[in-house]
């Protein structure tokens, strides 16, 4: 009798352990997602009655020029954030050497990761200031006209992405540093015996061992690019005239400033679909990699 009970308990216990996390995830993430999709079919100001309008919000979204500006900016973020893993790897290789003082250099490169992204945005906002910013001072020292990067619709997104890349590169660097510390010394020794060195060693011995880490760095960068929001809020508030807006910011602006929760939810749903597509691909790749060993 007791042994049956014990066997049953053993079977249930994993579920019991998962339950608190699953409940939390279910309410905070899953339920919220479902509710967002539900809200996106309504005309709602966040307070009053909700009015069902079917795909009305989506129809408006397709005709909204601001939506395409946001989408384009999201793509710029995504493309430029792909620079973060290679740059992070380069930095990691640089600071991974046994040279006196390298610890200080390492922590300096690590620093932006410690800063809140709001702080990073603020600092870069000052650097870009055309009146007293560091960039303006440098350009003036060379006799140039200081550029107003954040006021020009053609440069503003790139200027913000550059600020966003700073901590992102540091993040990738840390990931690769951890990866470099886990390299198999047997393989490296074997490579050395076979006469591999320099680029050949890196290309054929080190890099293959970093595949897993690279994959994580890539995923983190993609998600970082898609969720970009705080830098934009701090540096330009989506301006000038909405030209630096991304989907996440447009959703915030519509819901909070324009009191249009339904429309905001529709934007959120689109962003969700984009992210879900990426995450599906990511999980598939992850699975395949694990199966290969």
């Amino acid at each position: 009798m007791t042994s049956v009970w014990r066997r049953q308990l053993r079977r249930i216990s994993p579920f019991l352990f998962i339950l608190p996390g699953a409940l939390l995830f279910g309410t905070v993430i899953l339920l919220a997602c479902v509710e967002t999709v539900y809200i996106s079919f309504h005309d709602w100001d966040g307070m009053g009655a909700m009015r069902w309008i079917g795909f009305g919000n989506y129809a408006e979204l397709i005709a909204d020029p601001q939506f395409y500006v946001s989408l384009k900016n999201n793509l710029i973020w995504l493309a430029l954030f792909m620079l973060a893993p290679p740059l992070g790897l380069a930095l990691a290789l640089l600071v991974n050497q046994q040279i006196a003082g390298m610890r200080i250099v390492k922590s300096l490169f690590f620093m932006p990761l410690v800063l809140a992204s709001v702080t990073v945005g603020l600092v870069f906002g000052w650097v870009y200031d055309p009146n007293f910013g560091l960039l303006a001072l440098i350009v003036q020292a060379f006799g140039g006209e200081p550029p107003a990067l954040l006021s020009d619709e053609n440069t503003v997104t790139y200027a913000i992405v550059l600020a966003g890349l700073w901590p992102q590169v540091a993040f990738c660097m840390v990931l690769f540093l951890a990866g470099l510390n886990n390299l198999s010394s047997d393989l490296i020794g074997a490579g050395r015996v076979d006469g591999a060195r320099g680029l050949a060693m890196f290309r054929h011995v080190v890099l293959p061992q970093l595949t897993q880490v690279s994959f994580i760095a890539l995923a983190v960068s993609v998600i970082g690019a898609l969720r970009s929001f705080d830098m934009i809020a701090v540096m330009t508030a989506g301006g000038p005239f909405g030209s630096s807006t991304v989907l996440a910011y447009q959703m915030y602006e519509q819901s909070i400033f324009s009191y249009r929760f339904g429309y905001g939810a529709a934007i959120a749903t689109v962003l969700f679909v984009i992210m879900a597509a990426f995450i599906t691909w990511y999980l598939l790749m992850m699975n395949r990699m694990e199966r290969r060993g």
Partner: peptide, 21 residues
């Protein structure tokens, strides 16, 4: 004037989460 609240989330569900908050 902009408020500096963060509202991003991995799954893009921040409208609801924000409301929840």
């Amino acid at each position: 004037m902009t408020s500096m609240q963060k509202g991003s989330s991995i799954l893009g569900a921040s409208v609801s989460r924000r409301r929840l908050l």
